[in-house]
Nucleic acid binder design. Sequence first.
DNA 1: GTCCAGGGTGAAA
DNA 2: TTTCACCCTGGA
Length: 306
Amino acid sequence: MVVGDSRLSLELMSQIVDGVVVKSLQIDVEPFDLSQTLDGGQAFRWYPCEDGTFRGVVGTRILSVSGDGKTVSVAWVDGGSKGEVRKEVEDYFLADTNVDDLRSVLSSEPGFGEYVATMPLIRVMRQEPWECLAAFICSQNSNIPRIKKMVASVARMGRRLGEEDWAFEFPEVDIVADAGEEYLRSVGLGYRGKHLALTAQALVGWGDGELMGLRDASYYEAKDALMELQGVGPKVADCVLAYSLDKGEAFPVDVHVRRAAIRLYGLNEDVKNDAVGEWARDRFGRYAAWAQLYMFRDEINRRSGG
DNA sequence: GTCCAGGGTGAAA
DNA sequence: TTTCACCCTGGA
């Protein structure tokens, strides 16, 4: 039996699966804002705990992520080697991002530049593309609490990994395709059930690894491919490109980011969303996706009185 | 309880 | 190119 090398982590994980041995490790990444990164509208399967940690599923693993301001630690149920999990998690958090370069590009921007320069980073993550795509098909015309519920409903069709109501491996596309529109409606997706069912059915017909393969395609090529799918317009496509397909130049334009762009940069009130995206690619380059997270956050904070 | 907005999209006009 | 319905849930 291998015991976790952190007593704290051992305690955390004992809440996840009672009596099961866990391991933990420190990630080689600058500390970042766990709440706004994991649970800020980029991913929808992380759940905050009262002790400040976040628990969720990445791939086939239940993870607990914690930070003390100086380090970030991840604990997991025993079953993967430290090397494997380190590789998976540092990939998930894009640990090789050049933070100095990122700061040099974004730290002088109006509104959020000071945040970038002085506060823990909000990071772009690298999610599994199908799960990310399904989540953002659910996101349309909804709000974050509801999106989390819908995504949890879809996840429940996958293999159970633990006792919690969220502890499931995300189901493969054929499972969701077979479930069909009516089932997805019945678990709260509304008209999005049709979109997700049709997209899952379409993906079953794609070649093996074709969606994942869009990581190697150009931004515009990948975006065109995604927008062939039902329920995937420019905004959802950009989210999937930014948060799962390595396209840092993707800039998802939603109602909040649009408002922020107009407020901070004086863009015309009637500017087209596509034009906002092109403007952002020109201004932020490969860090457009990161800038978008900050502009989204800036607008949300502003509206909620923060 | 009522009302409105919600990380948009697809189809019709 | 622009307008509009859409399922239904949170939050005010």
